[in-house]
Amino acid sequence: MSGPRGGARTAPLPLLLPAVAGLAFLLLPLIALLVRTPWSTLPDQLTSTEVWQALRLSLLCATSATVLSLVVGVPLAWLLARTDFPGRGLVRALVTLPLVLPPVVGGVALLLAFGRNGVVGQWLDAWFGITIPFTTTGVVLAETFVAMPFLVISVEGTLRAADPRYEEAAATLGASRFTAFRRVTLPLIAPGVAAGAVLAWARALGEFGATITFAGNFPGRTQTMPLAVYLALQNDPAAAIALSLVLLAVSIAVLAGLRDRWMTAS
């Protein structure tokens, strides 16, 4: 990121043209959304308590899902990048499966596993009286299921690019493998972890299919912004556009803020 003005002048045309086309393709639908936004009724939409309830729940659940993804996803990425075990290629493919699975199918799969009658869920219900569907926990789990692969892939890629000799040096100085991971590897891959976390957070924030299938839709408990937007779309497209705009504005504010603080180091 040194000297953006000088960089633009030297960008070769075969790179510049597709880049601009790509940017335009990504931005045009967003611009169309802005053009069609019913600005006059926007204040009414934004003062509704249901909107703020949904937004608060969205931020809470997406952040929880990201934290959960970090806690189990970073160790999983380390396992995939730094150890050798039979079937590692298969495990890596399985980790990316939620990316391929249509989210609604993911939601059904979660029900079959953690539902009241699910493979694991029936024991949770029988032994602890815990049922996950239709709860905020269910939203967090659905979002984690869909978002974590982004984090794992991103962190694993960074780990593979990082020089393992630093860890080996730490080991020769007497550090245990866990200490080396904590004191050497983690600071080394921090930008990759941050990038993965941002990806996972953004994916979780926009999650719709798995959430509505696994956790249902109840205002204040499981109705996140994407669900509110979808249901508003059924009979009030103007409200749906206004709601999407709120979600976009908040996510852009958060992502831009984080980028400046965390990721300029890379």
């Binding site: 029900l111 539902g115 239709f134 509505i212 299938t213 839709n217 109840f218 499981t222 669900l227 249901l231």
Partner: peptide, 16 residues
């Protein structure tokens, strides 16, 4: 416990 997005998903919650 939930306001489902269409009739088939409401029914599926009982089927499951």
């Amino acid at each position: 416990v939930s306001y489902e997005e269409d009739v088939k998903s409401a029914l599926n919650k009982v089927v499951l």
